[in-house]
C-alpha cells in the first residue's frame, strides 16, 4: 500500500514542485554567469552597473523558485490531511502511519531534488570556484602522499556533511509536518492562518536551529582545534579519534531522537486527535 501512496503523492507534489524548480533553475543559470562575469570584471564600474539589476532579479528568482519547490511538499501535506481532500483521505483503507510515511519520503525526495536543481544551475560557477581554489592551493608542488591524504579527508568530510545535510532536511521537514498537524488539529477553522504564522516564526527564528546539527559539527571541530592550539586542551591521537567518534555518534543520536520525537508526535496527533467525520 505504501507504494501506491508514494506514487500518488509523487504525482500530486510534482504538479506544483516543477514550477518552482523551473523558476529556480532558469534563474540560477544566468545568476551563475553574472557572478562569474562580475568576478572577472572587478573594478570595471561601467559594466558592473548593468550587471547588478539582472543579478538581483535572478537572485529573487532563485529564492522564490526555491520557496515554491520546498513548500510544495507542505502544501501537499496540508491538503491531504486538512484540506477538502481530507474527507476522501480518511475513507481509504490505509493506515494513517502509512500515509504519513509516504508524505515524509516524498518530502525528503523533493526537498533534496530542489537543492540538487539549484546546485545544477550554479554548477558552472561552483566548479570554477573549486578549480580556482584548488589550482592556487596545489600549483603542482604538492607531494603525492599529502594529496592522497587530502582526497581521503575530503571524502570523509563530504560523507559526514551529506549525512548532516540529510538529517537537517529531515528535521526541518518533520518540524513543518508537526506544525501543520498541530495547527490543523487544534486551530481547526483558523488552521491555515495559524500555520502561516507558525511557518513565519519557524523560518525566522528556527532556521538557525535547523542548521544546528551542521553548525554544531563545524563549530565543535573548529572550537576543539582552537582549544588544542591555545594549549587549553592537550590530547593524544587516540583520545582525539575517540572524541571525534563520540562527537559524531552524539550528533547522530541527538538528531535521530529529535526526528523521532517530531514524527511520533505528529503521528499521535493524526491518529488520536484528528476527527474529520
Amino acid at each position: 500500500m505504501l507504494g501506491k501512496c508514494l506514487k500518488y503523492d509523487f504525482k500530486e507534489t510534482f504538479k506544483l514542485w516543477w514550477v518552482g524548480a523551473l523558476v529556480s533553475l532558469l534563474s540560477a543559470l544566468p545568476l551563475s554567469l553574472l557572478i562569474f562575469s562580475i568576478m572577472n570584471d572587478i573594478g570595471d564600474q561601467s559594466s558592473f552597473r548593468w550587471q547588478v539589476f539582472p543579478l538581483m532579479i535572478c537572485y529573487i528568482g532563485v529564492v522564490v523558485g526555491m520557496m515554491i519547490s520546498l513548500f510544495s511538499v507542505y502544501v501537499r501535506y496540508y491538503r491531504h490531511f486538512f484540506g477538502k481532500e481530507a474527507y476522501l483521505t480518511f475513507t481509504l483503507p490505509v493506515k494513517r502511519t502509512t500515509l504519513f510515511t509516504s508524505k515524509y519520503i516524498t518530502a525528503l525526495f523533493f526537498n533534496i531534488a530542489s537543492y540538487a536543481i539549484l546546485i545544477f544551475g550554479m554548477a558552472g560557477f561552483m566548479g570554477y570556484a573549486i578549480l580556482d581554489t584548488a589550482g592556487s592551493g596545489f600549483s603542482g608542488s604538492a607531494e603525492r602522499e599529502s594529496l592522497v591524504t587530502m582526497v581521503i579527508v575530503a571524502l570523509i568530510v563530504i560523507v559526514v556533511y551529506a549525512l548532516f545535510f540529510l538529517y537537517t532536511i529531515s528535521l526541518s521537514t518533520l518540524s513543518y509536518f508537526f506544525i501543520i498537524t498541530f495547527c490543523g488539529v487544534y486551530f481547526k477553522k483558523y488552521s491555515l492562518l495559524a500555520i502561516i504564522v507558525a511557518f513565519f516564526c519557524l523560518s525566522f527564528f528556527g532556521s538557525y536551529a535547523m542548521m544546528l546539527p551542521m553548525m554544531g559539527g563545524m563549530l565543535g571541530i573548529f572550537g576543539l582545534v582552537g582549544l588544542i592550539d591555545a594549549n587549553i586542551v592537550s590530547m593524544g591521537p587516540l583520545q582525539g579519534f575517540a572524541l571525534i567518534g563520540a562527537g559524531l555518534l552524539l550528533v547522530i543520536v541527538a538528531v535521530t531522537a529529535l526526528n523521532m520525537l517530531l514524527a511520533f508526535l505528529s503521528k499521535e496527533l493524526l491518529e488520536r486527535k484528528l476527527n474529520v467525520t
Binding site: 563520540a246 520525537l261 511520533f264
Partner: peptide
Amino acid sequence: KTLHPARYVALGLLSIAWIVLALLVALLI
C-alpha cells in the same frame, strides 16, 4: 491511551544514549 508504546521505549533509550554520549564527549575533552 498511547497507541504504540514500543516507539516511546526506543525514544527513551535514544535520549539516555544522548546523555551518556554527551557526558563521554565532555569527559574526553
